[in-house]
Design a protein around this nucleic acid. Structure first.
Length: 295
DNA sequence: CACTTGACCTGTCCGC
DNA sequence: TGCGGACAGGTCAAGT
C-alpha cells in the first residue's frame, strides 16, 4: 500500500517537523522492526539530531548529525505518525479529532522515537516493515539501493530509458515488470493498475509484445498518476495514513483500483478483478483487451 | 540466467 | 454464532 506517493506524502509532512530536532529516546517491542545493536543505538542515535528527511523509491531516509541514517520501510501496513507534546490544538485524549489513529502507542506500535518536542510512532500491524540504523555513507552499498531503478518523476528519467529498462524483462507480464523495483522505483499494485488502465494495456501482456508507442504512453500515464496521487496525499485502502494519522484521498479519483463490478469511467464496461503476477489486478476488459497489444 | 512462487505477519471477510 | 480458509500487498529467498 505505501507506494511512492504515500511515502512522499509522509516525507513532506515529517521533514519540517523533524529537521533540527534531537532524538532523546527509543523504544521498540518487536525486534525485527528495529534490528539494531543496543550499543549502536546508544552511540549513533540517542543525542543526535535530524539533518534531513528524504525518500528513495518506497523507502524513507532520515539522516542524522551522527552521520548515521534511519532507513524506514513501511511495506504493507506501516505508519509513521508524529504527535507533538503540545496538545493545545487537539481534542479529547491528545490527538487530532480527524485522525484515523487513536491514542498512541497502541497495539500495533512497534517503535517509538522520542524528541523533546514530540514523539514519532512507527505502527505496523503486520510487522513486515522495519527501521534500520546504518552509516549514511554506506546506504549506496546496500543491495536494494544498488539495484533500484530510476525515480519515475525525476526530470532526467526519459522514455528511452524507461523502454530500455522494461525490455530487460521482455518475457514477463508488463505488470510484473512495473512492480519490479529494479526496473522502475516506487510503483506498487495500486499505481500499476491505474497506469495500465490509462495506457489501455492489459496487465498480463508480455513486455516484448508492448509496442514502443504504448510504452511511451505508459511512461506518461505513470507520471500523471503518481503526480496526481501525491497531490491527493496518497491512497488509503486500509491502513495508510500520513504523519498526522490522516487518510489519503487518491482512491476517490482512482479509475480501476478496487472498482470491480463498477462501470469503467471511460467506456462504461464493467471492471473486472483478476490475478496477474500473483496480485489482485483490476482492468476494463474492453479498454485493455487481452492479447498482443501491438501498435 | 530469467522468471515464478512462497514466506514473512495480522486482521478482516466470506461461506458453511 | 463459531470456525476455517482465502485474501490483502512489498520484498527477498528459494524453487523451477
Amino acid at each position: 500500500m505505501p507506494e511512492l506517493p504515500e511515502v512522499e506524502t509522509v516525507k513532506r509532512g515529517l521533514a519540517p517537523l523533524l529537521v533540527g530536532k534531537k532524538i532523546l529516546a527509543i523504544d521498540y517491542d518487536w525486534p525485527k522492526s528495529f534490528p539494531n545493536a543496543p550499543s549502536d543505538v546508544e552511540q549513533f542515535l540517542i543525542g543526535s539530531s535530524v539533518v534531513a528527511v528524504k525518500r528513495r523509491a518506497k523507502v524513507l531516509l532520515i539522516s542524522l548529525s551522527s552521520k548515521y541514517s534511519l532507513i524506514i520501510h513501511l511495506r504493507m501496513t506501516g505508519q509513521l505518525v508524529y504527535r507533538s507534546n503540545d496538545n493545545k490544538n487537539d481534542f479529547g485524549a491528545g490527538h487530532p479529532n480527524d485522525s484515523l489513529v487513536g491514542d498512541l502507542p497502541d497495539k500495533s506500535t512497534r517503535v517509538i522515537i522520542g524528541f523533546k518536542e514530540g514523539t514519532l510512532f512507527f505502527n505496523d500491524q503486520r510487522k513486515f516493515g522495519y527501521i534500520r540504523l546504518v552509516p549514511t555513507i554506506e546506504i549506496p552499498l546496500i543491495d536494494f539501493f544498488k539495484k533500484v531503478g530510476p525515480e519515475p518523476l525525476s526530470a532526467t528519467f526519459t522514455k528511452a530509458q524507461f523502454r530500455q529498462r522494461l525490455n530487460r524483462r521482455a518475457n514477463t507480464a508488463v505488470k510484473a515488470a512495473l512492480l519490479d523495483q529494479s526496473v522502475i522505483a516506487g510503483i506498487g499494485n495500486i499505481y500499476a493498475d491505474e497506469s495500465l488502465w490509462g495506457a489501455r494495456i492489459h496487465p498480463s501482456t508480455l513486455v516484448k509484445n508492448v509496442s514502443t508507442l504504448n510504452m511511451n504512453v505508459l511512461f506518461d500515464e505513470i507520471r500523471h498518476v503518481l503526480t496526481l496521487a501525491i497531490e491527493k496525499g496518497g491512497s488509503t485502502d486500509k491502513n495508510y495514513v500520513n504523519h498526522e494519522g490522516k487518510r489519503g484521498n487518491y482512491l476517490t479519483f482512482a479509475r480501476v483500483f478496487r472498482k470491480e463490478r463498477q462501470p469503467c469511467p471511460r467506456c462504461g464496461t464493467i471492471i473486472e478483478k483478476l490475478r496477474v503476477a500473483g496480485r489482485g489486478t483490476h482492468i476494463c476488459p474492453k479498454c485493455q483487451p487481452k492479447k498482443g497489444s501491438t501498435r
